Simulated scan of single mutants.
Amino acid sequence: MTVSEQHRTEIRTETATYTVEATSLPEARVAVDVSAAGPQGEPVADGHLELDAAAAATLANVLAKALRSAGALGRTGARRPGPRPAHQGQPWSPTLDEDLERRWLAGEPVEAIAEAFGRSPGSIRARLPRVGCDPEAPGAYLPDPPSRREVTAMNP
């Protein structure tokens, strides 16, 4: 009696539908079929492998590494296009914090502040709460956190 087992995975993305099927074969072998279809059903990938079942786990690791590497081809390594802000990753000083607070309370937009500081808009938004400003409300402070409120004696 021959026992056959098959596993199928289908993953849909915005640009394609990927299908991977692994099927056990007689004599401790495995067949792996890979295919992908674009948004209109046009084929964008197709492949077939047969291998010893004992090598399947190793091949899976090798393919995963190779595909991650291939996916990185053509990338520059930067997360966003264009040059990095001039002061990205540099520490903040008390003087910079005071200037950030002053500019925010004066109503300057995040993008203008970021350009003046040579930093990204995201880093400005992340720094605002550290100087007590509300990044969701231009020109406003955050409410006083409990740690900064004066402790008042409770009347018995």
Score class of each variant (00 low, 15 high):
1 M>D: 14
2 T>Q: 12
5 E>D: 13
7 H>S: 11
8 R>E: 15
9 T>C: 14
11 I>N: 04
14 E>C: 01
16 A>F: 09
16 A>M: 11
17 T>R: 13
19 T>H: 01
20 V>P: 02
21 E>M: 12
22 A>H: 04
24 S>E: 13
26 P>E: 13
29 R>H: 06
32 V>G: 02
36 A>Y: 09
38 G>C: 09
38 G>W: 08
38 G>N: 10
39 P>L: 14
41 G>A: 08
43 P>S: 08
44 V>L: 11
46 D>G: 13
46 D>W: 06
46 D>K: 07
48 H>L: 04
49 L>M: 05
51 L>S: 01
51 L>K: 01
52 D>Q: 06
53 A>D: 08
56 A>V: 04
59 L>V: 05
59 L>W: 03
60 A>L: 06
64 A>R: 09
65 K>Y: 03
66 A>E: 05
68 R>K: 05
70 A>N: 04
71 G>H: 01
74 G>F: 05
74 G>K: 02
76 T>E: 14
77 G>D: 06
79 R>D: 11
80 R>P: 03
81 P>E: 14
81 P>K: 13
83 P>A: 15
85 P>E: 11
86 A>C: 01
88 Q>P: 03
91 P>Q: 06
92 W>D: 11
93 S>F: 07
105 L>H: 01
110 V>T: 14
114 A>C: 14
115 E>C: 00
116 A>E: 15
119 R>D: 11
120 S>H: 09
120 S>Q: 06
123 S>F: 00
127 R>C: 03
132 G>R: 09
133 C>H: 03
136 E>P: 04
139 G>Q: 13
142 L>V: 04
147 S>W: 11
148 R>T: 15
151 V>Y: 07
151 V>M: 14
153 A>Q: 15
155 N>T: 15
156 P>T: 15
